[in-house]
Write a protein that binds this DNA or RNA. Structure first.
Length: 271
DNA sequence: CCGGACGCCTGTCGGC
DNA sequence: TGCCGACAGGCGTCCG
């Protein structure tokens, strides 16, 4: 589920509540996530003072004075801030208890996400090692993308979703950015011109930025830490709109599979 | 090294 | 009504 805008929305929701607070305990109801959550999670976090809540790619990084926590929402994960004692529901796998009577509750029906305590800065975790640049990092340019794509024969959309190239773009925003840049998702990455890469990078940044402003996209599960959905779904131009008219040319949009994922595009506007 | 298929999970939806 | 397959926002591994 959550791509960069949903993770960033989650980060912004929890950061003001967490920063400077003391973690007092953790309740672990289900440890079988993408990686097993250590049995001693509570002891690992109890008494730690939270310094900051950051984000790298689609990971949330909670830094505290004894290390940190790495958190990923997978396909269906959400995090909420609730009062202590709030009854736990199905798939509420982990609670992080905070000084002052609130808790951070992690819910993830499909269990593709993760919560891992780290002894040092969670930035240094091996899971983050091979990630590409953030989409808003100035080191990322149309020229850089053009270079990286030179020998890549995968479809443009698959390339765009490769987290080693750049991070944060998932299945929804890949289709949206390609529509905005008027590029055919099936085009081979190695055959895309430098001006087209610049157009695409601009489109990626615009789409992500607008989605963050809207609080992300709620197709089904996603909620911000207050339990509110994201409203970018109202701005989706192509995702989920197979056979509906293109908002630009009125011709019906197409759907196909690329890299095993549903892909939506306009065969007239995107070349 | 690269690209494609598959698996990990649960829930939901459409077709029969 | 019930069953069964397909599919869903991510990502890692395997194999050719």
């Amino acid at each position: 589920m959550p791509e960069l805008p949903e993770v960033e929305t989650t980060r912004r929701g929890i950061a003001p509540l967490l920063e400077g607070r003391l973690l007092t305990w953790a309740i672990l109801r289900e440890q079988r996530l993408r990686h097993a959550v250590p049995e001693n999670l509570a002891e690992r976090v109890a008494g730690a003072r939270i310094l900051s809540v950051g984000r790298r790619a689609k990971y949330l990084l909670i830094r505290h004075d004894r290390g940190g926590l790495l958190l990923h929402l997978g396909m269906s994960g959400t995090v909420r801030v609730l009062p202590v004692g709030y009854p736990a529901a199905k798939h509420d796998h982990v609670d992080l208890l905070l000084e002052g009577g609130e808790l951070l509750r992690y819910n993830d029906p499909r269990r593709f996400g993760l919560i891992l305590p780290t002894n040092s800065d969670p930035d240094d975790h091996p899971l983050l090692r091979d990630l590409g640049p953030e989409p808003f990092d100035p080191v990322l340019t149309g020229e850089a993308l053009h270079q990286m794509a030179r020998k890549r024969k995968s479809p443009l959309k698959v390339f765009l979703m490769d987290q080693k190239i750049l991070v944060g773009v998932g299945n929804i925003y890949a289709s949206e950015a390609l529509f905005r840049a008027r590029l055919d998702p099936r085009r081979l990455a190695c055959e895309v011109s430098r001006p087209a890469w610049m157009r695409l990078l601009t489109a990626v940044r615009e789409v992500l930025d607008e989605a963050i402003t809207a609080g992300g996209t709620t197709l089904k599960d996603f909620r911000d830490p207050d339990g509110k959905p994201g409203y970018f779904g109202l701005h989706l131009q192509v995702y989920g709109r197979a056979d509906e008219p293109c908002l630009s040319c009125k011709r019906p949009l197409h759907q196909l599979r690329l890299g095993g994922r549903a892909t939506y595009y306009c065969s007239h506007c995107q070349r």
